[in-house]
Design a protein around this nucleic acid. Structure first.
Length: 843
RNA sequence: GCGCCCGUAGCCCAACGGCAGAGGCACCAGGUUUAGGUCCUGGCCAGUGAGAGUUCGAAUCUCUCCGGGCGCACCA
């Protein structure tokens, strides 16, 4: 452009910190943070919702674990989350956007051992550091509801919830082989074992027979599955799939076989199968080698073989067990079982390919139609009998099991049938008539093992009494506060550190007053986080965990933003707790999180950031160099929220440049606040209103990156209008820049606030409200219609937006370029899509 | 092995079945400065991984293949 560039640029054209009049992110942060602390603009007010003045929104981001300071991951998830929370405020909702800390857990305990101090020292110091960083990061949290799961005031209610589940028979103790992490010296839930290793420390997990506390999540398996219908389309598809897989429902039948033991007695055993229709093809039976059943039914002459086999199996880690190409092993138990449909005597084997804790721990083996059974049959030289002819090669020769439907053969009354459902029905009917079986549903989901042999968690509020058994600690005595242990006291020794605190352990039985001992395990930290979103609604309530009335007001969570790494554990447990509390009439909803968004991860140069690769990006340094707003903008603009962000692909300096350009606009506006905008430049006004309308749709669709692109366009258009269009005094320019400030308030709050002030407004722009969009300005004066011949563009016409199909066709056919393009060919068909397009088909 | 998702300029990413490029990064040129990791203007740049089909019209729908990512994987 030319030299009508406004004068202010002489001073403003700088991004250098410290320069007078320049855009200085650091100065803005120092200027506005105290103002916001004073105004406290994002405190969620119960009364405002209750009066009906504003509708509620509950925006939640997965609360952090207090290890060190915040990192890029925190910066990303909170920046994305804050866009939506701030948008809701601007749109006139009363938004509950709380923050807290998941502050129990192993890292603090390990740090405490290393430094010979109490875990709380490390924990609360980190929390303060992170809280300060979050504040500087300019997030719209309601700090008044802050919680820490390691506070006695919080874990008192975690213990209360445990008691409630215990009361309802949903918390129980049982002895069973459990996952044991030799490094952390504690048991782990199934969900915490990933590929045979501890998800936290990576150590290879082994098995131990221990008596542990469980939550009966399996009672809710079907509902956990069914209620996902409510979440369809509102949760990421992959999370729903993960949950579905994890619950792992299957349909089949229980079939009872008679075992003929070595002592001549008969004993029934039930197997679970999804293919009862292949019962005639069963040629042997397999029981889990490590199940009690195997030892009980084993013939005496095989007892030694079984014992040494079990020993071998126990030694094998889960890693070995996971190798799918691993050869099948096992030992015969020296007994037979009778096939209930044809009376055949089947040899019974023990093997580790059958799992003790799934189904009944015993299977009927149909090698022809199950690859695992076939592999075993091949290894042991057992017969293979095809009973379903699928047209494929006979598995007995090909060693490829056929699992599809086909025509039944060698199956007695089933022969000739070729419908799988009918086959299953026929066999089940027969079994039911004989009292030898029934239809059954099985779940892969296991009960939630919640005991941990570690210190830094909520003690399990149970007293063990020789006379009364497991006695719940009375609610009035909660919380059961952790004893004051630290440093070396906490060293893992395979049993809970709490056991060493004898004065703490030894208490009178609450029931009989006799000598009792406290349970010395603590709860899995996933128990703490399975209900924290409820506590935010009733902060500081000393009478109850949460007030149902508060949850009626705020619940359920409207948007839950966090990482996919919690797709199974945390979300499943929270869903479970919600349903239990619903059944207790404490909640009127059955799903805690109505919608969910998973952010990607921040990587660098194509790889996960790690110390060993030396490619870590330090959040603090980025914030120092580019400022909070530029870093937040970069993270939000990088791409769709769920995509990973490669820090090498993005440009915080580019973000900083954009913010500088936006900020400079606010200094150029030369009309007074409240000027009559209707007299302003219509073209710019259209852009402004169109941008606002589109931005709203984009934010609601979580397309924050595109929303920012639109804001950039508006900034560019405004710059152009000032420099070479209507000029800085046009009220349309003010309107546009105010719109920019509001749009930027979602992602760059400091810059937006400064712009707002320069525009002559009071803080805070975060609560200024979304400008009203004038629908009249969304309609274009004219649109460009394209005319295609055979789908190729040949001409463009400027037409009214409300042009009729007939008028548009007439105009198109009259256009010289079109006439020329058609030439002497015959017009076969004309497709008209007013006002955008005409397509002429010639032939 | 099974299932799901994704392939658009040098890079990150847009595009109700209707003009392939909105925005940014990088790069180049010009101007302003010439103390600039400044600012302004302009430019460069793909025919949408490959092929086939449906359609008046396909980046968009369908199928096959290639490439990448994710999930599940002895759950009977």
């Amino acid at each position: 452009m030319d030299d009508q560039t406004p004068r202010t640029d002489q001073v403003d054209r700088t991004g250098e910190p410290g320069e007078p009049g320049g855009y200085d992110p650091k100065a803005l942060q120092e200027k506005w943070l105290p103002v916001w602390e004073r105004l406290d603009p994002f405190r969620a007010d119960d009364a405002v919702v209750d009066s009906g003045e504003r509708e509620k929104k509950y925006a939640l981001t997965m609360f952090p674990y207090p290890s060190g300071d915040l990192h890029m991951g925190h910066a990303e998830v909170t920046a994305l989350h804050d866009v939506l929370a701030r948008y809701w405020w601007q749109r006139g909702y009363e938004v509950l956007n709380p923050i807290g800390w998941d502050s129990f857990g192993l890292p603090a305990e390990n740090a405490a051992i290393k430094r010979d101090e109490h875990p709380s020292t490390y924990t609360y110091a980190n929390i303060e550091t992170q809280a300060g960083s979050f504040r500087r990061y300019g997030l719209s949290f309601d700090w008044s509801r802050r919680l820490h799961t390691s506070d006695p005031e919080y874990y008192r209610w975690t213990q209360w919830l445990f008691l409630k589940l215990h009361e309802r028979g949903l918390a129980y103790r049982k002895a069973s082989p459990v996952n044991w992490c030799p490094n952390d010296q504690t048991v782990l839930a199934n969900e915490q074992v990933v590929d045979g290793a501890c998800e936290r420390c990576g150590a290879i997990v082994t098995k131990r027979e221990l008596t542990q506390w469980y939550f009966k999540v399996t009672d809710y398996a079907q509902r956990l599955l069914d209620d996902m219908a409510q979440l369809e389309g509102r949760w990421p598809e992959r999370v729903l799939t993960l949950q579905r897989n994890w619950i792992g429902r299957s349909e089949g039948a229980h079939v009872e076989f008679d075992l003929h033991l070595a002592d001549g007695s008969t004993r029934p055993v039930t197997v679970y199968t999804t293919r009862p229709d292949t019962l005639y093809g069963a040629t042997f039976m397999v029981v889990a080698a490590d199940a009690k059943l195997a030892a009980e039914i084993c013939a005496p002459e095989q007892a030694d073989a079984l014992a040494s086999y079990v020993e071998e199996v126990r030694k094998a880690s889960d890693i070995d067990r996971l190798a799918t190409d691993r050869p099948k092993t096992g030992v015969p138990l020296g007994i037979t079982a009778t096939n209930p449909v044809n009376g055949e005597q089947l040899p019974v084997w023990a093997s580790d390919y059958v799992l003790a804790d799934y189904g009944t721990g015993a299977v009927m083996a149909v090698p022809a139609h199950d690859q695992r059974d076939l592999d075993f049959a091949k290894a042991m030289g057992l017969p293979v009998r095809r009973v379903v002819d699928t047209g494929e090669d006979d598995p007995a020769e090909s060693f490829v099991a056929t699992t599809g439907a086909g025509t039944y053969v060698s199956s007695g009354p089933l022969d000739g049938l070729s419908d799988k459902a009918a086959g299953i029905q026929a066999v089940v009917d027969r079994l039911e008539a004989d009292g030898r079986g029934t239809r059954a549903v099985n779940f892969r989901l296991r009960d939630w093992l919640l005991s941990r042999q570690r210190f830094w968690g909520a003690p399990i509020p149970i007293v063990h009494c020789a006379a009364c058994g497991e006695v719940p600690v009375p609610e009035s005595e909660l919380p059961v506060v952790l004893p004051d242990l630290k440093g070396a006291d906490l060293k893992p020794k395979g049993s809970s550190p709490l056991a060493a605190a004898r004065d703490w352990v030894e208490v009178p039985c609450p029931r009989c007053g006799g000598p009792g001992e406290r349970d010395t395990d603590t709860m899995d930290t996933f128990v703490d986080s399975a209900w924290y979103f409820l506590r935010y609604c009733s902060p500081g309530n000393t009478e109850m965990a949460f007030d149902p009335a508060d949850l009626k007001r705020w619940g359920p969570v409207d948007m839950y933003v966090g990482g996919v790494e919690h797709a199974v554990l945390h979300l499943l447990y929270s869903r479970f707790f919600t349903k239990v509390l619903h059944d207790m009439d404490l909640l009127d909803f059955t799903e805690p999180f109505s919608a969910q968004l998973n952010q990607g991860v921040v990587i660098n140069q194509g790889k996960k950031m790690s110390k060993s690769l030396g490619n870590g990006v330090n959040l603090g340094e980025q914030l120092d160099e580019f400022g909070v707003d530029a870093v937040r903008l970069t993270l939000v603009f990088a791409g769709p929220p769920e995509d990973n962000i490669d820090w090498a692909d993005v440009s915080p300096s580019g973000s900083l440049r954009f913010l500088t350009r936006a900020w400079r606009l606010s200094g150029d506006v030369a009309s007074a606040p409240g000027a009559d905008v209707t007299t302003g430049d219509v073209a710019l006004r259209r852009t402004t209103h169109k941008t606002l309308a589109e931005a709203a749709t984009l934010v609601e669709g979580y397309r924050f990156n595109v929303m920012i692109a639109r804001t950039m366009e508006l900034v560019n258009a405004t710059r152009k209008a000032i420099d070479s269009g209507c000029g800085p005094a046009d009220p349309a320019v003010r309107e546009a820049v105010e719109a920019v400030a509001v749009l930027l308030s979602l992602v760059a709050p400091y810059t937006a606030e400064e712009m707002w002030e320069r525009l002559g407004h009071e803080a805070t722009v975060g609560r200024a409200g979304w400008p009203t969009v004038d629908p009249a300005l969304l309609v274009e004066e004219s649109v460009t219609a394209v005319v295609q011949i055979q789908g190729k563009v040949k001409a463009r016409l400027e037409v009214a937006p409300d042009v009729t199909d007939a008028d548009l066709e007439a105009a198109a056919m009259a256009d010289p370029a079109v006439v020329a393009a058609i030439g002497d060919r015959t017009v076969r068909k004309v497709i008209v899509r007013a006002p955008k397009l005409v397509n002429v088909v010639v032939g």
